[in-house]
Design a protein around this nucleic acid. Structure first.
Lengths: 106, 106
DNA sequence: TTATTTAATCGTAAAAATACGATAATTAAA
DNA sequence: TTTAATTATCGTATTTTTACGATTAAATAA
C-alpha cells in the first residue's frame, strides 16, 4: 500500500495511524521522554542519550518532525528540539477519543 | 534493530512503541473503529469492510492479536473478534500518561 | 460422503523502515 | 583563514512490513 491507497481510509484513520507510526519505535519514545524530562528545548545531547549512531538518531528526529510532534530550531551550529504543544495535544486527544470510544462489549 | 537491541530501551518504551505500532496502519485503525462501532464481537465481515484482500486483512488481525488488543474466538467455521478490554485500557493508560507527562516548556 | 464456507497460512514480490559510515554544510572558535 | 564542532544528508545493506493469490484446514451443509 503505497501513496495511492491512502484515500481508501478516512482522514482520521490516516492521521491516527501516522501519529502512532511516529511513536512506534522505542528510540523515538525514548527521545520524547527525554525531552519531557528535561522540560525545556534540548540542543544536541539527544544523541548521547541513545544507543544509536548520530545519523540514525537524526533520522528518528526527522520522523518526529515529519508528523509535527517535534520542532527543531537552528541556533548556530546546534539544533534545539522542542515538542510542539499543539500537535502533542492533537495526538493526545485523538488517542483519548479513540480509547474512550470503546465502552466494552462482551 | 532486530530482536537483540530491544533491551537497549526500557520495558515501558518498548511497550508503548509496540502498541503504537499495532495502530500505525490505517487499516488496523479502521478495523478497531469498526469493532467499536458494532459494539459487539464481530464474526467475519471485517473483510467486507476493508478495501483489502482477505489474506491481508487476516494479517492485520494477526498483528492486533499479537500485542493483545484483539482476541479471536473460533465459532465453527467463523472467528469472532473482540477488543480485549484489559489491553485496551493498558494502551489508553500508557498513551494518557505519556501525553500528560508533557506540561509545556518553551 | 462430498461440496461449501470461512479463515489462517504459505510463498513471494514490492515497498518501507532501520541502521550505519562517510560526506557535506554551516557556524563558531582558534 | 584554518580548524573544530554540530547536525543533516547521502549511499547503501539489511530487515521488516505490506499486499496478494494460492493453498490448506476445519467445520458445516447438502
Amino acid at each position: 500500500m503505497a501513496v495511492a491507497k491512502k484515500n481508501l481510509f478516512t482522514d482520521e484513520e490516516n492521521r491516527i495511524a501516522d501519529l502512532a507510526k511516529a511513536i512506534s519505535h522505542p528510540a523515538r519514545v525514548s527521545i520524547l521522554l527525554y525531552l519531557i524530562k528535561k522540560n525545556s528545548c534540548v540542543c544536541g545531547d539527544i544523541v548521547d542519550e541513545l544507543p544509536l549512531s548520530q545519523s540514525t538518531v537524526s533520522q528518528h528526529l526527522k520522523e518526529l518532525k515529519r508528523v509535527g510532534i517535534l520542532q527543531g530550531d537552528i541556533e548556530g551550529t546546534r539544533t534545539c528540539y522542542c515538542i510542539n504543544p499543539k500537535v502533542w495535544m492533537e495526538m493526545g486527544n485523538l488517542f483519548k477519543v479513540l480509547t474512550e470510544k470503546f465502552k466494552g462489549c462482551c
